[in-house]
Each structure stands twice: as structure tokens, then as C-alpha cells.
Design a protein around this nucleic acid. Structure first.
Lengths: 232, 232
DNA sequence: CAGTCGTTTTGCGTTGCATCAATGCGCGTC
DNA sequence: GACGCGCATTGATGCAACGCAAAACGACTG
């Protein structure tokens, strides 16, 4: 009897949950593997979409460049999540660049094979639809935040989201589980690293967060939530 | 032989293109109809998702409220497009409110029947994936714009997009085909109606646009594009 | 035709945040 | 241990855009 180490892992991802075992075996057979060291680029903005990737381990960052050289961070992608959504559609181009922020291990399928698989196993297409709805919804909320809220609250919401998505419990509080600099935060929030630094410094004095070189720990998440959601 | 007036219309929409004729007939049989007058609400933010709607005629606006009473416009939805994406997923809630800005005619399917249809006809699920990818990509670009560009350029981009999406050729230039107030524009761009008014007034003096009560005509689209995309 | 309501314009004071510049700190490297 | 580099802090300054207020301008209504 063969041993397929990926199978049960597959079955717990957002894209492949509920997929019949034979589909999982097909997926495994067609999968390509990819390892990245922290800092490596998976693909660049404007590249043709060749493959969709599933993150097995590690963490990636999807970002988008403006013509002025500024960039924003679209999202961080962790284990079980999908990188390179645009590859769901054949012959498209990637809207952003995806970079590894930690050493990462990925599995990829070509757009063409993915399409075949979705035709044969509609569950996967339906999972993809659900996943994209979530992402779309996420973006709507961020667009609203950046359009209507001021910087302090946006930083608050962003940290809470990151903590929720990939926070680890520690003695001091919830720690963001990957390196996150002031500049990174600024590019998620739509501000400058200077402003982030000032605001986080104030929070640090108040004991709400504890942060250092590319590390952030939320000591009092509820206090942060109060700042992020207080009435007017 | 029966006459199904919707069938060829269906086959030209983003969601249903490439769908086999028998699927179209099933879809037609399961469809609910809905008519809205300008100003009517299709569903509210927070409502449970019951149905997904296809716009046959008219125009709708998807918006999202912030707790302070401010709101932003997510997008305008025209004929052939889909309203209420969240209904792709059963037992979810709508992230925004959808309102008719013109008298509109819609067709709807319940989430449950939609799911069955997608299982039976994966093309539709795959179309949905492509559609959501496009929307997701759109939002990424808007998020980048609102985070990195200043108001004048954002208004320019927004008008160009609207013109592209639903502009009608007229003697004076390209006219946005539905009522669009300064406030509406402000809520799409993430600014105030005052700022929009000022900037549009300047453009009006320069002959780039011509606008009045809830009407906008782009007289010199290329000049607008130059403003929106000029280097630095 | 007067009255009302929604939209747009415009002036002006205010301010949140960007921008520039200088300094300090921690970490890896030769 | 000294150097250099990337990251973080902090102050000073300027400006783009906000927010208020008041008025002008249609458009619709009784």
C-alpha cells in the first residue's frame, strides 16, 4: 500500500476540503513542488500565470507596485492558503508579486491541469468560488477602512487581523508569527513607516503592544480592539 | 416549440457564457424574477444571502457602510453582470447593500439551487471563479490607488473606468450612462464631495469634462488619462 | 409661481499626515 | 572589536485635503 504524505494535509486546506480521495490522488500526481528561501520571489507582477500554488509551510507576501515605486501589501499567505489566484484563469497575468517572507514549501498545479480537475471535480471549483468570495470581501473591508478611517484605527485593525490570521500565543501576548517591519505595516495600511513608528511607540508606552526589530506582540488585544472600534 | 426569450441573453453574460443549452433551460426554469425602481434596495448589508442576481437591464450600486455613517461605493453593476456575489456561498451574509440607481430588471437563483447547478455544470462554477478573480483584481488596484495616489488622479482613474464600463458616445464626448453625483464620485474615490467638486470644476474650465446635476461627460478622455497616469 | 428639497459651488480655517533630516540601535560580517 | 547596513525613533515643517458654512442653482411639487 502506497503512502501519500500530502493527502490528509490537502484535505484540510481551503481549496481542497471535501474533495473525494481519488481526486486527491490525481492532484498529488499532477502536483509540482517548489521550495523558497526567505526573500525569494515566487512570481512577479505582470508575469503570465502558469501555476496556482498551495502553501504547505512557511509564509509569503503578495504585494503590488505602483508606477512611482511605492508598493502596497495585498496580503500575507500562510499554510493551507492559495497563492497566485489569478492562475485559476488561463492566459492571464499576475496582478502582484509574491515573495517568501519565511522559508516556504509550496505545491503547484498548472492552470490547464487545474481547469481539468475543476471540470472533473466541481467541489474544487466551488471551494475556489468560496475562497475568492472571502478574499473579495476582505478587500472590500480594507478598501472601506482606507477610505474612511484614520491611520491609527487602520493600524489597529490590521494588527488584529494579522494576529487572528497567524498569531501565536506567548507569555507576553499574541505574537505575529513572521517578521513584520514598520515599513511592511505601513504598506499594508496605506501610510508611511514614520507614522506607523510614532503610533506604535505610543502604544508601546501604554503597554498595549511590545515590538522590536520586525517583531510585534499584542499584549492587550482588547485595548487595541477598543482603539480600532471605538465610537467616533 | 417553446420560446425562451432569456436563453440567448444568458449565453452572453459573464457567468453563463459557454454553458450548454440544457443547463440554460434548467437555469431558466429555476430563475426568479425581480423588478426594481430607481432607489429601491435589493438587499441590505448584513442580510443573509438567499439569492444571487443577474442584471438583465438597468444599473445597481453596491455600497458598504462604515459605523460612522460614512459609506463607500464598491462598484456599479450593469447588464450581464452579477449582483450579490456572496450568495455563491450558502448561509453567508451580504457584505454590502445593493441599490438600484436606474429602473432595473433582475433574475435570481437561490444559493442552494445555484450550488446544485454548479455541481452539475462545472462550467458555471469555473465562470464564477473567473468573474471573482476579476473582481478581486479590480479591488486590488483600487486599494493600491487609494493607498498611494492623491485624490485628483484617483478621480481621473475612476471616471475613466466608469466610462469604459458604461460610457455612451455622444456629440460632446463619452457620457457616464447613469446618474452620478459628486457625492457618489466621492464615495467611489474615498474623498469628500467638496474636493470632488473643486477638482471637477477645474477640469470643466479646461474643457476636459462637462458635467451638471448628476451627469458627467468626458470631453477629452486622453487629457484625463494624461492627468491620471502622468509620471510623478 | 412660490416653496422646498437635493445638488453643486466656493471661501476659509483647520488638521492629519507626509516629507525631510538627523540620530540611535541591533545584528551580521570581515 | 570595528565597521556597515537595515531598521526604528523623533523632531521640525509644509501641504493636501477635510470639514464647516453659506449661497447659488436647478428641478420637482402643490
Amino acid at each position: 500500500m502506497d503512502y501519500y504524505p500530502d493527502l490528509d494535509l490537502f484535505a484540510r486546506t481551503e481549496l481542497l476540503q471535501g474533495t473525494p480521495p481519488d481526486a486527491l490522488r490525481v492532484l498529488q500526481a499532477w502536483a509540482g513542488r517548489r521550495r523558497l528561501a526567505a526573500g525569494d520571489i515566487l512570481f512577479q507582477q505582470g508575469d503570465r500565470t502558469t501555476s496556482l500554488f498551495l502553501v504547505i509551510a512557511g509564509r509569503l507576501r503578495a504585494s503590488q507596485m505602483a508606477q512611482g515605486g511605492q508598493q502596497i501589501i495585498i496580503r500575507y499567505i500562510g499554510p493551507g492558503e492559495v497563492a497566485g489566484c489569478a492562475a485559476f484563469v488561463e492566459n492571464d497575468t499576475h496582478p502582484g508579486t509574491v515573495t517568501a517572507v519565511d522559508d516556504s514549501h509550496l505545491i503547484g498545479w498548472t492552470s490547464a491541469s487545474l481547469r481539468q480537475i475543476m471540470e472533473r471535480y466541481p467541489v474544487i471549483a466551488i471551494n475556489a468560488v468560496a475562497l475568492l468570495c472571502r478574499r473579495y470581501h476582505e478587500m472590500q473591508i480594507r478598501l472601506r477602512e482606507v477610505s474612511t478611517e484614520r491611520v491609527e484605527r487602520r493600524i489597529g485593525h490590521t494588527l488584529l487581523r494579522l494576529a487572528h490570521q497567524s498569531g501565536g500565543r506567548t507569555a507576553r501576548g499574541i505574537e505575529i508569527a513572521f517578521p513584520l517591519s514598520r515599513r511592511d505595516l505601513a504598506e499594508m495600511v496605506g501610510t508611511t513607516l514614520y507614522t506607523v513608528s510614532r503610533i506604535v511607540s505610543v502604544w508601546e508606552e501604554r503597554g498595549i503592544v511590545s515590538s522590536g526589530r520586525r517583531r510585534v506582540v499584542l499584549c492587550k488585544p482588547h485595548a487595541l480592539a477598543a482603539i480600532a472600534d471605538e465610537e467616533e
